[in-house]
Each structure stands twice: as structure tokens, then as C-alpha cells.
Simulated scan of single mutants.
Amino acid sequence: MNLTETDTSLFKRLRFVLVETSHPGNIGAAARAIKTMGFGRLILVNPRFEDALSHPDAIAFASGALDVLESAQIMYSVENAVSGCNFVAAVSARLREFSPPILDPRTFAQRVSKPEEGEIALIFGSERYGLPNQVVMNCQALINIPANPAYSSLNLAQAIQLLAYEARVASFVETEGGSHIGFQGQLASTEQVEGMYSHLEEALIAVDFLDPDNPKKLMPRIKRLFSRAGLEAEEVNILRGISKKILDISKR
């Protein structure tokens, strides 16, 4: 299957975001990994080398996936890289106390294979130090690969290959059958959800439920709660309406 045959499928909706990648060879290997599974959207956030996409090691390791390198984008923030996405998942071997819901690769792939899930992003961290906690907390899921606990370290391209494979398999299952019964609205974008969080935080401060000088872990816990829900755009609007009403009442 090639990309032109799947214009409305996960093959077009899924983007692979690599944050502060250290080795150009890993970028080339990542391009090869996603192309072999039928994907092609690669975004780099602040790679270590300015010529990361044209570096000789990247070209050598791409091994026939130069078209993916040539169409890849370089951005300077994770927020820009996932702009317009409805579901964003971080990939990490390190679990966090206040992480979003943890999914294995197969469960993730089965969820996002449905067309109504909209635009999807997978975020992979630096080979040297992984992903910052703030990036993980702003995602809707944390993907943990159930590797050997005694030696769970995967090369970046290996992890990408595994996720791309599961996404490909799940896409075939979704295409071949299965009906979805009941109304399901458009999922909220990451920008809409982040706006809702800011609005809600302002409302909680206004009614003295949240102390801005001593916030503790309230907002990370709230984000974790809502990330399990898969918020739709209309649901976000309802929550923002509630926040607005709280603020209006607090000003009387």
C-alpha cells in the first residue's frame, strides 16, 4: 500500500515528531522506518545539527527514503509541531507520577486508526535524555513499549518502526470492517484543550480552589483526568462556558 491509496486514512493523519534528535543517522533511519510502513510525515523539533535533513549520515541511513527527508519539516517548538492535532501521544520508557493515561503500542494504534480521531502526533524524545515532563503532561497518552525490564532501551528508529508497524496493522483492520454505532462529535484540537485548561485554571483561582502561589499538582491531575476522556470540541466549549460563568459570578 502506498500513500496515494490512503489519502483519508491514518497514513495521512499520523505525524512522527522527533524532539532534539542528536544523531543525523537516527533521523535517516527514522525516515526509512516510517516509509517502510507506508507513512511519510516527519517533523523535527530543534535537531542538534542545522543540516540534520541533508547531513551525509541522515542520507546514508535513510536508504531509499530520501523523499521523506526532503518533505520533512523543522520546527522550533513542540507546540508548533503538533498544531492542529486532535490526539498527541508521547513515547517514553520512563513512567511519570502525573503522566497521562499509559497505552501500549497496539492499544494506541487501535484507538487512532478510526477516522474520527482526526490528526494524530507521536512524539519521540532525544536519544540522550528523552522527553521533558512538561511535554509528556501536555499529551493525551504516554506510550510505553513493554520491553525486557532488565534491558528496556530501544534505539530511536527501532521504537519508531514498532509504532509505525502497529499503526499500519490497525489501519488494515479498520479499513476491512467494523461499524461504529452512535453519535461521535469532532475531537477537540490540542489548542482548544490547552485553551480550556487555561480558562479553567483562571476560574479555579477566582473561587480560591487553586492557590497560584502553591498550586501543588492540581492542574497536572486535572489534565490527566480529562486526557482519559478524549474530549470533543463541543465538550470543551461546555467546560469553557462553565469556567466563564464561574468567573462572571466571582466578579459580582
Rank of each mutant, 00 (worst) to 15 (best):
N2H: 12
N2R: 11
N2Y: 12
T6F: 12
T6W: 10
D7E: 14
D7Y: 13
T8G: 07
T8L: 10
L10W: 09
K12W: 14
V17W: 08
V17P: 09
V17F: 09
V19W: 08
E20C: 10
T21D: 01
S22K: 07
G25V: 05
N26A: 04
N26Q: 00
I27G: 04
A29Y: 07
A29F: 06
A30M: 06
A30P: 12
I34D: 04
K35I: 08
T36K: 02
I43W: 08
L44D: 08
N46V: 01
F49G: 00
E50T: 11
L53Y: 11
H55V: 04
P56N: 10
D57M: 10
A58T: 07
A58Y: 09
A58N: 02
I59A: 08
A60E: 13
S63A: 15
A65S: 09
L66F: 13
D67E: 11
S71Q: 13
A72Y: 10
Y76I: 02
N80R: 09
G84C: 07
C85I: 01
A90I: 03
V91M: 13
S92N: 06
A93K: 13
R94T: 06
R94P: 00
L95N: 10
R96D: 05
R96A: 11
S99V: 01
L103Y: 15
D104T: 11
P105D: 05
R106Y: 07
A109P: 06
Q110Y: 14
P115C: 04
G118D: 01
E127D: 04
E127A: 07
R128I: 09
R128G: 06
N133L: 07
N138R: 09
N138D: 09
C139S: 10
I145E: 06
I145A: 08
I145G: 04
P149V: 05
S152L: 05
L156M: 02
A157L: 03
Q158H: 15
I160F: 04
L163W: 03
L163T: 02
L163Q: 00
V169P: 00
A170H: 03
F172S: 10
T175C: 02
G182M: 00
G182E: 05
F183Y: 13
Q184G: 13
E191Y: 04
V193P: 01
V193W: 03
Y197M: 08
E202V: 02
L204G: 03
A206E: 00
V207C: 12
V207R: 07
L210E: 00
P215A: 09
K216R: 15
K217Y: 14
M219I: 15
M219T: 11
P220S: 12
P220M: 11
R221L: 15
R221F: 14
R221D: 11
R221Q: 14
I222N: 01
R224H: 09
F226H: 00
R228N: 10
R228E: 09
A229G: 07
A233R: 04
A233C: 08
E235C: 03
V236M: 01
R240K: 15
G241H: 02
G241D: 03
K244R: 15
K244F: 13
I246M: 13
L247A: 04
D248M: 11
I249Q: 13
K251S: 15
K251C: 05
